[in-house]
Design a protein around this nucleic acid. Structure first.
Length: 416
RNA sequence: CGGGGCGUGGCUCAGUUUGGCUAGAGCGCUUGGUUUGGGACCAAGAGGUCGUGCGUUCAAGUCGCACCGCCCCGACCA
């Protein structure tokens, strides 16, 4: 991709509208822009990161047996009255009436819709277990949106739902999801603390949260320095480890995932029943599993940046390589740069090519800000000695070698 | 919703305390020239309902009232 063909509005200074690190860098590196409070546009770079995270999620979900579908964001209020959550969710849900007088809402989450759907079409234990998921936009009228994508009124979530005939099946699916979540966050470059959590409005018994440490995080985890057990902190909790009594550390975190064993809370109220082998009518046993996909971007940045900008983990970087011809008016430089660009494209690496007629300093600063893992620098002086520079964004390591050796260095870096 | 901060060109900000003439700077943008390995320099330009409304005054970016927007703290929350 040529820089001049895409849309990367970088900012030299921290914008007034942002205070937290991830919010500042998301704006400065041109990933998002505010439309209104708590509502953001994803610019091409932000959209790429979002897609990369979604690709990882899809792989891990599919490989643990979940099947993707897409549910409507527009929902009838009636379902929420039936489940009894209309009141519990109250003002957080955006409601309105359409021209036909139908009472509608924009889905803040999808337990009702999926339970209704599955309930209509599953009637035998032979159809279970079933695990479905979607990646979709959720709407929540937040009391106070904050920190850019961390708490937004419109955001993207992966939500999965498991349907089982018994507790044993639920436990199995729950465990599979738990493990898949670990993989997802690891591949996204996130360090995660898993905690036992309060199911809250979602209901159910067992629940775990996946918390990413961040100094601007709004959730607090009590982590025992001794036995490493962790618990989500609620106002009023004692600040000691529940297991060994040691004084626990309070850690600021961003909640990026939350899984629940719902049991029959939704299936019983919404009539999602099945017949077991004995012909007995029973409510389906459910679990639900959420990942804050857009929020995850903020959490990753909070854990991967330095004074110069973002440092993307390889697998979710918007581009893996940026090519910096330092002087686009120099023939040798541009020729070499373009030929390298084509070679990398042929390898399927899709590099970003900074074809702007800017000074070296501007290009370096922007490349660092964007946080693309590898920078290939082509300058006039070093080219006289047939040398090209490869800079590794995270370590600041610089390698100065001839083109073919640079290509194999890139291979080594990308393919491990 | 309560508390606090902010709102002046695309961005960052000065000017508001103590009202006064054609509203400023840096960056960015346009044109020309010189530059070219860490956010260049010179010259000439374009670009502003000073968040909005009402009021006070001979005179309002500046004072008063109301409202709007963004950010932060709190309450709340998946």
């Amino acid at each position: 991709m040529l820089w001049s063909k895409t849309f990367i509005p970088t900012l030299k200074e921290n914008p007034q509208e942002a205070e937290s690190i991830s919010h500042q860098l998301l704006l400065r590196a041109g990933l998002i822009r505010l439309l209104m409070g708590g509502v953001y546009s994803y610019l091409p770079l932000g959209f790429k990161v979002l897609n990369n995270i979604q690709a990882i999620i899809r792989q891990e979900m599919n490989s643990c047996g979940a099947v993707e579908l897409l549910l409507p964001a527009l929902q009838p209020l009636e379902l929420w009255l039936k489940s009894g959550r209309s009141e519990a969710i109250a003002e957080v849900m955006i409601r309105f009436t359409d021209r036909r007088g139908r009472k509608l809402c924009l889905g803040p989450t999808h337990e009702e819709v999926i339970t209704d759907l599955v309930g209509r079409h599953v009637s035998s234990y032979k159809q279970l277990p079933l695990v479905l998921y979607q990646i979709q936009t959720k709407f929540r009228d937040e009391i106070r949106p904050r920190f850019g994508l961390v708490r937004a009124c419109e955001f993207i979530m992966k939500d999965a739902y498991s349907f089982d005939k018994d507790e044993e099946g639920l436990n199995r699916n729950y465990k599979a999801m738990y493990d898949a979540y670990k993989n997802i966050f690891k591949r996204c470059g996130l360090q995660i603390i898993t905690t036992e959590a309060d199911p809250g409005v979602m209901g159910g018994s067992v629940s775990h949260e996946f918390m990413a440490q961040s100094k601007d995080g709004e959730d607090i985890v009590l982590l025992c320095p001794k036995c490493k057990s962790a618990k989500t902190y609620k106002e009023g909790d004692k600040e000691v480890c529940a297991k060994c009594g040691e004084k626990a550390d309070k850690i600021n975190t961003i909640e990026v995932g939350h899984i629940f064993q719902l049991g029959t809370k939704y299936s019983s109220t919404l009539g999602a029943n099945f017949l077991d082998a004995q012909g007995k009518l029973l409510p389906i046993i459910m679990g639900c599993y959420g990942i804050g996909v857009s929020r995850l971007i903020s959490a990753v940045i909070e854990q991967n940046y330095d004074k110069d900008g973002i440092i993307w983990p390889n697998e979710i970087a918007p581009y893996r390589i940026i090519i910096l011809p330092l002087d686009v008016t120099d023939n040798d430089v541009t020729k070499t740069a373009y030929s390298l660009y084509e070679k990398l494209e042929k390898k399927g690496l899709e590099p970003l090519f900074d074809d702007r007629d800017e000074r070296a300093g501007v290009k370096f600063k922007d490349a660092d800000l964007l946080g693309i893992p590898l920078q290939v620098v082509i300058g006039r002086q070093s080219l006289k000695d047939n040398l090209i520079e490869l800079k590794i964004r995270r370590s600041h390591e610089k390698i100065m070698k001839p083109e073919n050796e640079i290509l194999s260095e890139i291979d080594r870096f990308i393919n491990g």
